[in-house]
C-alpha cells in the first residue's frame, strides 16, 4: 500500500469485484468441489453418489498402477527439471561469455518458448517416427532399435527429450538475465582474485545465480508436473495404453475417460497438496537462505 493511498471507500471494491467473482466461480468453487467429491463414490451411470470417506484415497495408495504412474512422475519430473536447467545454464553462461553474436544466439535460443506443448509433441512424433523419424534413424545407426509408442522406456525417452527441448528457452532467458544482473564490479573483483575461469564460475557466478536457479527449480517442477500434458497427450496419440504418463495425465484419463469422478478428484486433491507443499517450501527457503540483497 502506498503511504498516501486514496481513501475512496467504494471504488476499490468495484475494481476488485470482477477478479474476485471470476476467482470464486472458477477457482474456489471447483477446488472445493474437487475436495468434496474426493470423499464420494460416483455412481457409474450418473445416479447420485455415496459418501465413502477416505476410501478413494486408500484405493489410490493401494493401486499398483497409480503408484507406477507416481513413480514415473517423479523420475520424469527430476529428469526434465535437471536436464533443462543444466542445458540452459550451460548455454546462458556461453552466451554471456561471447561478445560477438550474443544477441543472435539469444534470439535463436528463444524461439521454442512460443511453441505450444502439443505442437512440440507433434514435432516429437515426426522426429521419433518409427519408420521415417530422423532421430530414430540416428539411434538405429548406433544399434538402438528405437520404438516410440511400443517400448515403454523409448516412449519415456521421447517424452523427456521433447519436454526438455520445450523448456530450455525459458530457463535460458532467466539464467542469462540473472548473469547480466551480476554487477560488473563483482565480476572484476573475481577476475582479480581467481585466475581460473571455472573456479570463478563455481565460487562467484553460481552462488549469485542461486536465487534465479531456485526460482526456476520450482517453475520447472511445476512445468514438468502440469504443462507437459500436451506433450504427453500428443506423443501417446491420445491412447494411453501401456505408455508412460504422469499424474496430471492420469487425473484426466480416469476422470474424463474413465468417469471415475471420485478417484480422479482424490488424485486432484493429492496434486493440490503436492503443489501447496512445493510452494510453502519455496517461500520458506527463499526467505531463509538464498537471498543476498
Amino acid at each position: 500500500m502506498k503511504r498516501a493511498g486514496f481513501a475512496n471507500p467504494w471504488l476499490p471494491i468495484l475494481l476488485l469485484v470482477p477478479q474476485l467473482t471470476i476467482i470464486a466461480v472458477f477457482f474456489y468453487w471447483p477446488a472445493a468441489h474437487a475436495i468434496q467429491s474426493s470423499f464420494f463414490l460416483q455412481d457409474p451411470f450418473g445416479f447420485g453418489s455415496t459418501f465413502v470417506g477416505l476410501e478413494n484415497y486408500a484405493d489410490l495408495l493401494g493401486n499398483k498402477e497409480y503408484l507406477k504412474v507416481a513413480g514415473f512422475t517423479v523420475v520424469f519430473t527430476l529428469l526434465v527439471t535437471f536436464l533443462s536447467l543444466g542445458l540452459a545454464l550451460l548455454l546462458a553462461v556461453k552466451a554471456d561469455n561471447v561478445i560477438r553474436g550474443a544477441k543472435t544466439y539469444r534470439t535463436l535460443l528463444m524461439w521454442v518458448y512460443a511453441v505450444a506443448p502439443p505442437v512440440a509433441g507433434f514435432i516429437g512424433i515426426l522426429m521419433f517416427d518409427q519408420s521415417t523419424g530422423p532421430l530414430t534413424a540416428f539411434f538405429q545407426s548406433l544399434g538402438w532399435d528405437f520404438k516410440l509408442g511400443v517400448v515403454y522406456s523409448d516412449t519415456a525417452f521421447a517424452m523427456v527429450t521433447v519436454s526438455v527441448w520445450k523448456q530450455v528457452p525459458v530457463n535460458f532467458i532467466f539464467f542469462l538475465s540473472g548473469l547480466h544482473s551480476i554487477p560488473v564490479a563483482v565480476r572484476e573483483a573475481a577476475l582479480i582474485d581467481n585466475r581460473s575461469a571455472s573456479g570463478r564460475f563455481w565460487d562467484v557466478t553460481f552462488p549469485l545465480l542461486a536465487p534465479t536457479g531456485f526460482f526456476l527449480l520450482i517453475t520447472n517442477i511445476t512445468y514438468a508436473l502440469f504443462d507437459t500434458f500436451g506433450v504427453i497427450d500428443t506423443l501417446v496419440k491420445g491412447e494411453p495404453g501401456n505408455n508412460p504418463m504422469n499424474l496430471v495425465y492420469k487425473v484426466y484419463v480416469d476422470g474424463f475417460r474413465g468417469n471415475d469422478l471420485g478417484g480422479s478428484s482424490a488424485q486432484s486433491v493429492i496434486l493440490m497438496v503436492l503443489v501447496l507443499a512445493l510452494t510453502v517450501f519455496q517461500f520458506r527457503l527463499v526467505e531463509r537462505r538464498i537471498h543476498y540483497t
Binding site: 500500500m1 477478479q19 476467482i23 477446488a31 474437487a34 487425473v251 480422479s264 478428484s265 486432484s268
Partner: peptide, 28 residues
C-alpha cells in the same frame, strides 16, 4: 493505491490462485 480494510484478505484470496494451476481442478 487504496486504503482498504480487507486488503490483506483480498490479497490472499487472489494470490492463493497462483498456487493451483487449472490442471489440478480441471474436472470440477
Amino acid at each position: 493505491y487504496f486504503r482498504l480494510r480487507f486488503a490483506l484478505f483480498a490479497f490472499w484470496v487472489i494470490f492463493t490462485t497462483l498456487l493451483l494451476p487449472l490442471e489440478v481442478r480441471i474436472l470440477p
